[in-house]
């Protein structure tokens, strides 16, 4: 808000952007055929070698998706946390990716659409919309975190059951297996078509969520005080539901379920923006992009015949992180005045 803070934020955003770009370059270099930075740059410039094809057709879509999806989850997490005013809020805890996966799985399993058709992200968005909308409706205006998390748990379990039902009833065991793997979350073998498919959803999601930044800041004082300051709290709530559903739904449609970026990314940068729920949004998006790109490099560097799925890695890292946050926040969670 004040000028020094703005300057600090710009510096933070600049550093994070540089990290993202370095990681993106590393992501283009990493793989079963490691490439030099020069080779990557030549490939991006359009050379006709095999390396050029590998970079442009295999690694570039994957890298772009990692950055875009990471940024989307980071922003979605920051927005949900701003809305419910708690750092432990995260789309995966509210069942959003699970529900999006159920929607997408339904469409794929019954052959309603090919894996790169628009029906998949729309089904994902619909699933996420139901779960986040349901959560906000159930948890209500003055929901405690306990109610919110319990409702999220229930919705996530239900979404899991719905997905299991889809797998159960899948007409073809190969499709069921394919969906089961896809649900683990991965950016392997994605094409530029996937990027094109998801980008419009991401852009709308970012604009919708970012437009609520000022409201999140006012919500620091609680809903009544925010409303008295001219914030249309109901509209903010709807905007967050739609923004998160669009982003998460489309992300899940192209990558399967990848969790916990929305929890970890805002947490990493929150202190640097003095816990301001509006200023945290851009750094959280950049940190999310960096985290997911780094994780996607990591899964390619681990030796072994089978690539570890990205969603498995983010969960393996994210859940202990979540537990550590609960541990450090437990005094607040146990009802001490915040």
């Amino acid at each position: 808000m004040t000028t020094p803070a703005t300057r600090r934020d710009l510096r933070l955003d600049g550093v994070l952007l540089a990290v993202v770009l370095v990681l993106a370059l590393a992501s283009l270099m990493a793989g079963s055929a490691p490439l030099s930075p020069q080779a990557v740059l030549a490939a991006l410039a359009g050379d006709e070698s095999v390396a050029g094809v590998i970079v442009r057709e295999i690694r570039l879509p994957r890298t772009l998706l990692a950055m875009l999806i990471g940024a989307t989850y980071g922003l979605a997490g920051a927005a949900l946390q701003g809305l419910v005013r708690n750092p432990l809020a995260e789309p995966a805890l509210f069942g959003a990716p699970q529900a999006a996966a159920a929607g997408a799985a339904l469409v794929i399993a019954f052959g309603l659409a090919g894996a790169t058709s628009l029906a998949v992200p729309f089904a994902g968005v619909a699933g996420a919309l139901i779960s986040i909308g349901g959560l906000v409706a159930i948890a209500g205006r003055r929901a405690s975190l306990t109610v919110t998390l319990l409702a999220g748990l229930a919705l996530a379990s239900f979404a899991g059951a719905a997905t299991a039902l889809v797998l159960n009833l899948a007409p073809n065991p190969f499709i069921a297996l394919e969906i089961a793997f896809w649900l683990l979350g991965s950016l392997q073998d994605r094409s530029i078509d996937h990027v094109v498919l998801a980008v419009p959803f991401f852009l709308v999601s970012w604009v919708v969520l970012a437009s609520q930044a000022g409201s999140f800041r006012a919500l620091t004082l609680g809903e009544d005080a925010a409303a008295s300051l001219g914030v249309a709290v109901d509209r903010t709530r709807i905007a967050v539901v739609i923004g998160v559903a669009l982003g998460v739904g489309a992300a899940v449609a192209v990558s399967g379920a990848i969790g916990f970026i929305g929890l970890v990314a805002p947490h990493l940068v929150r202190r640097a923006v003095s816990f301001d729920p509006a200023r945290v949004m851009l750094p959280a998006a950049l940190a999310g992009a960096a985290l997911l790109t780094a994780a996607d490099i990591a899964v390619r560097l681990v030796p072994g015949a089978i690539e570890i799925k990205l969603g498995v890695v983010t969960a393996l890292i994210g859940v202990p992180f979540f537990l550590a946050m609960i541990f450090s926040e437990r005094r607040t969670l146990e009802g001490a005045p915040s």
Binding site: M1, A218, T220, L221, G222, L229, S274, F275, S338
Partner: peptide, 17 residues
């Protein structure tokens, strides 16, 4: 109620919203 540990000056600035 203050839900985030924001700086006092920033909190008071919310009154200018």
């Amino acid at each position: 109620v203050f839900h985030w540990p924001m700086a006092v000056g920033d909190v008071v600035m919310l009154g200018r919203h």
